[in-house]
């Protein structure tokens, strides 16, 4: 049984991996995955606990996860590797020619753990709904999870999906909005205000929960609470407040670190702030 401290240690290593992967590739997105690292670690190690050695595309008989905001790939790959889907050595190939770790998640290279290509935003929730419906048709009582960005909510397809999931009672689905308040061009408020998300999701007919996404205890409890709300006729939404760049002081809450890689000096500084817990790849 993994303790909260164990999960925190894993999240710390994931954060180191993110910095090192993006630095190693001289490209990528450090800010978002640093903010969502705690969530992804909790989801895989404590909540879903899928079998990494028996990965199937269908995911029958286990919970499945979709990353709609595919630019968080560095963090997801690190979590998948530490969870056992593939060796952590492979993280060094991130974004490089011939790698299974594409800049944005892809199925074409056959990386275990990935069921859908993502990166062009706004598509993941629809896919998650389809997978949730397949589970219902198959009599599979496991759940489907989907992480979405907040800026991504500006894509209209999401609102088609919100309407559908509530209208068709897709209650084996937990969607999570990574609400860090910033996107490439700046704060959501300046780029395109999202308004009262809680009221909007409730008006669409979802069960809406909220949690702080950079505290492991709160994340684990929040996800367990969300599980409890499944099977009650409504899809479940968690508005998860996070900090972009969490763990690195000069990246914290700074939209300029959405898609910029740290140079050697910045990398050294960042790694000095994140404990190496499980060993660097």
């Amino acid at each position: 049984m993994l303790s909260i401290e164990d999960l925190e240690q894993t999240a710390s290593q994931v954060r180191r991996d993110i910095i090192r992967m993006v630095h190693g590739a001289s490209s990528g997105h450090p800010g978002g995955p640093l903010g969502s690292a705690d969530f992804l670690v909790a989801l895989y190690f404590k909540i879903m606990k899928p079998d990494p050695l028996q990965f199937t595309m269908d995911g029958t008989g286990e919970d499945v996860f979709f990353l709609s905001n595919g630019h968080l790939s560095a963090g997801w790959y690190s979590v998948l590797a530490h969870y056992g889907y593939f060796g952590t050595d492979e993280l060094a190939t991130f974004r490089k020619l011939g790698s299974r770790l594409q800049g944005h998640p892809a199925t074409a290279e056959g990386l275990p753990g990935i069921r859908m290509s993502s990166g062009s935003l706004g598509q993941g929730l629809s896919v998650a709904i389809g997978a949730a419906m397949a589970k219902k048709l198959n009599g599979d009582e496991h759940l489907v999870y989907c992480l979405m960005g907040d800026g991504e909510l500006q894509e209209g397809q999401n609102w088609e999906a919100f309407m559908f999931a509530a209208g068709k009672n897709i209650d084996n689905l937990i969607a999570v909005v990574d609400y860090n308040g910033v996107q490439i061009d700046g704060p959501n408020e300046k780029v395109m205000p999202l308004g009262d998300l809680e009221a909007k999701f409730e008006a669409f007919g979802w069960n809406v929960l909220s949690m702080y996404g950079n505290d492991m205890t709160e994340v684990v409890d929040g996800l367990k609470k969300a599980q409890w709300f499944t099977g009650q006729g409504k899809p479940v939404m968690i508005i998860m407040t996070t900090h972009m760049g969490f763990g690195v002081d000069f990246m914290l809450d700074n939209h300029e670190w959405h898609g910029v890689f740290p140079n050697d000096e910045q990398t050294e500084k960042a790694l000095g702030q994140i404990a190496e817990t499980l060993g660097d790849y």
Partner: peptide, 15 residues
């Protein structure tokens, strides 16, 4: 758009 995404998701589960 939602229909195409749902269709893609349904294949994950063998549909």
């Amino acid at each position: 758009a939602n229909m195409i995404g749902i269709a893609a998701g349904l294949t994950i589960g063998g549909k």
